[in-house]
Every structure is written in C-alpha cells, then in structure tokens.
Write a protein that binds this DNA or RNA. Structure first.
Lengths: 249, 249
DNA sequence: TTCAAAACCATTCAAATTCAACCAAATTAA
DNA sequence: TTAATTTGGTTGAATTTGAATGGTTTTGAA
C-alpha cells in the first residue's frame, strides 16, 4: 500500500473518532506496527495529529482541515531540518527565547517538554500550549502584519527574563553589516533578547546570506548561525567571524 | 483503553454532572481505581477539574472551551446585549482594558476603531486585529486552561498603562464579599487593571449574582455593573452601593 | 465529643503493554 | 543491474497499568 494512501486512511479515521489505537490502524491498513508507528511520527511532525501512548489523538488547537497539503514545499523541508538541529542544542530545564516568525515555529514540535519558553510570537502559543510547555509571553504592542509583539513595553517586559539560549530569524546576514531586519522596532526586541541570552542562534535558509535590510540587530560575531546547503565561498566570508552550522537536507 | 480516551470520557461525564465519583469512572471506563486516580491527578494539574474526596468536581473557573456551544446558544443573546451597551460607553480615542473571558469577547465586534485596547486575553487578539484596532498585550505567564496571561510579570506589565475604562468578567458578585473569581492570580490582575482605570465596569449575566468564588477582586463599590434581567429584590441589595445597569434583552 | 469502622487516598512494585532503535528483507527508482 | 527507500520483525528500554500496602479522612454510633 502506498504511504500516502495509509496516511489518508489514518487521518480519515481520526477525523471520525478523535482517538485511534495503533492496533486499529494495523488492521485498517493491513500493515505492520512498525509502519504505523513511522506514519504517526511523520504525521505528528507535520502537525496533523498528536501521538499519545497507545495511538494518536486529534489535535484540536489546530485547523485539521484540508488546506495544509501544500506545506511540503522545498523550503519547508530545509526549515524543518534547521529547526531540528536547533532543538538538539537545547537541554532539559533550560530557559529559551523563541523569536516570532515562520522559521522558528518549526522548532516547536520537537521541543523537549520540561523547558521554559519565552516568546514574542503570538502565533506560537497554540502549538506551545498543545505541547504542555511552560510559556511566557512578552507584553507590548501587537504588530498586525506579523503578530509579533514589539515596542517600548516589549523591551521593558523582556528585561524580566534571562535565557540560556535564544533562537532568532532575520532577514539579512552580511559579513560587514551583521544581522538585519526591515522593522526598526522588531530589531530592538531581537537585539535585547540576544543580549539576555548566554548563547544566541540565528536560523536562516541560504537566501538570507549577503542580504542587508534596514535595521541592524547585531554584529555577526554576536550569534552562531544555523543554515542549510551553503556555497563554500559564501561560508568562507564568515570564516573566523562566527560559527556556521550547515545542516544538510 | 487509550489514556486520552479515558480523559475525554471523564471530562464528558463531568460536563454533564458537575461531580463524579471514582467508582462511576471505574465502571464507565472499565479500568482500575488506581488508573482513574492517576487520571484525575493529571487532569487536575492541567486545570480541567478539581479533585475532591471521593471523586472530582467541575472547575468553576472556566472550562468553557468545549462547552462554548451550548453556553453560547442560551446566554449568547443576553451577553450580546450587555456587550453592546458596554461598548456604547466607550468614546473615541479612549484607552480601554478588556479582560480575558467569554463575556468580554462579545464586545469586540462593536468596538469603534480609533481606540487603544489593552488585554490579557490571547484569544481576543485575532478579532481585535481583524477590526484594525490598536492592541497591546500584557506580558507574563500563559495560563493553559484559559489562555489568560497572569502572574508576577503580568502585574508588572500592567503598570505601564492607564485606562479610561476597563471591562471585566467575574464569577461571583455579592453585596458583602464583592467581586470574586476562582483563580487567585487572575484576581490580582483584574484588581490592578481596575485600579488603573478611571471607570471600571463588570459585565455579568444574572447567574453571577449572590455567588462567591475563592479569590476576591474588589469591593462592590469599586465598579459599575452591567447585566441583564435582574430580580428587583436582588437589585435592591445593591442599592446605594453601586450602579447597576440592567439591559433588557 | 470520642472512638472505631469504613471509605478513601498516595505510594510502591511487578506485570503487561507500548515504545524507539536497529537490521535485514522487500520494494521501488535510477 | 545497483542504489535508495520502504517495510516488517526483533530487541531492550520506557510507560502504563492493576493490585497490595499502609496512612489519612470521613462516617456514624455511642
């Protein structure tokens, strides 16, 4: 049976039943337990369901309707790989700052449970709460276009916290001009969050390199970079300036 | 049986009955007493219910996400009327605090555009942004069960603002014991928000009167009350203590 | 009120179930 | 064909479960 065919049957049954046992799915699809387990792992990462001991459950904090089929763009896969590597850096019990933005959101399904997360990304909340992760939200002005929290109050709110690690998205990475982003106010929040962290990580796909946006966040050396397939000559531009971890897809 | 499946059954029964005995749940789910006890411990920690000797009781705070539909259908019209009246009190350019909770959310569709809103209710955000209303969010700990922001940081975050008017939901209104709510930390946030407002309004349907919950927010005289069809003898209990506006449905 | 029986509870332990990781066979793709 | 992916079985580890233990709370009768 085709992999996608099984996935559809699984999701179909889940839509009717709220929860399914692995044994049910083994019978329904006439495949082995191992295969079903693998399917569930995949489907969980794609946020179609939530695995529970003994089977899987519908995840209600999300839209589980049709529109999510085309998520599997090429870029998405790279982002996932980057996110997985980033999560691997996190240790139990740490306090973590998660920047708003679509790159960072990919980390959430992989996060360990017993950490403390602080974020300025409202859109991250449903996923974080679904994962039972202790979450603090920064206060301040809600920027409509990105649902990020910024401004004077966000700065003041951040001062309450200290982080073991922070994970940020940016719009530009440049050996001379550093990390940049279009919005002045978002830059200020990112900058402060980085300075409150023992270690700062930038998550960026290769399209961000050699780009420069309006507002400077910090110098290159301030953070380590996690990215995907990078030309070696680009990589050389940063030699000695900061660590770049290249995650191969 | 799947752990998740049991949890759902427990919550389902609790929704219908207000209290359940352990023995009932043992029969309902065909599992052992030990298992049910463990389930109740977990569900209590997630703030879905309150354990009592012999079983569990509905958490009066707000377990209203799943019950939203029934609740809405009956009280919805009254709540809407109350909300519309409340919005009528707001003038252009004012700064407004909106409490988290299902009563207050009804106000959002009627709000004028050129005001500033501050809220601790994450679930209000999509609606507010859709209305193009300038919105500030309080920072702090995200309480999983209600999506309200509470705690030390919420208090500190609130101190940044002053309000012309605030609109609050409560669980109990009592001539002697004042306004009350089950959660101590939520009460602290509500109390501070009220003290930062020139005028404070309590939105409450008639079921909240003569009720008393655990944590006191403030004395009756601290706020004006907006409600629906109220017995005149109940209304008389508050004569001279505060204004009550009765909105007829 | 006091006391003892009953009911209820948290904790512990061993059995059963479920799990991730691994490997080899089968299938598919190049 | 070979190489890559998918699959199913096996392993030991991790989780969940039910029963047993002993402590605590409630009940009800004196």
């Amino acid at each position: 049976m085709l992999e996608t065919e099984r996935h559809e049957k699984i999701l179909q049954l889940l839509k009717e039943k709220n929860t399914v046992k692995i044994q049910e799915l083994v019978e329904l699809t006439s495949s082995s337990e191992s295969t079903i387990r693998r399917d569930l792992t995949v489907l969980e990462k794609k946020e179609y369901l939530k695995r529970v001991h003994g089977g899987a459950a519908k995840l209600q904090g999300k839209l589980q309707e049709p529109t999510m089929n085309e998520k599997s763009s090429k870029n998405h896969h790279a982002k996932q790989k980057i996110a997985q590597y980033a999560v691997g850096l996190i240790e139990e019990g740490e306090s973590i700052y998660l920047d708003a933005g679509s790159t960072i959101v990919e980390m959430i399904p992989y996060l360990p449970e017993n950490i403390v997360v602080v974020t300025n990304g409202i859109t991250h909340l449903p996923l974080l709460l679904e994962r039972n992760i202790m979450t603090y939200l920064i206060g301040g002005f809600v920027k409509p276009s990105t649902n990020a929290i910024i401004g004077r109050d966000a700065i003041a709110s951040l001062e309450h916290y200290r982080f073991d690690k922070c994970f940020m998205g940016v719009n530009g990475i440049h050996p001379q001009f550093g990390y940049t982003t279009p919005d002045q106010e978002e830059a200020a929040v990112k900058k402060l969050a980085m300075s409150l962290s023992r270690e700062a990580y930038i998550l960026a796909d290769d399209s961000k390199f050699s780009e420069v946006a309006f507002a400077k966040i910090a110098d290159i050396k301030t953070a380590k970079i996690i990215t995907n397939d990078l030309d070696s000559d680009i990589k050389n531009q940063y030699a000695g300036k900061t660590d770049i971890k290249v995650v191969t897809a």
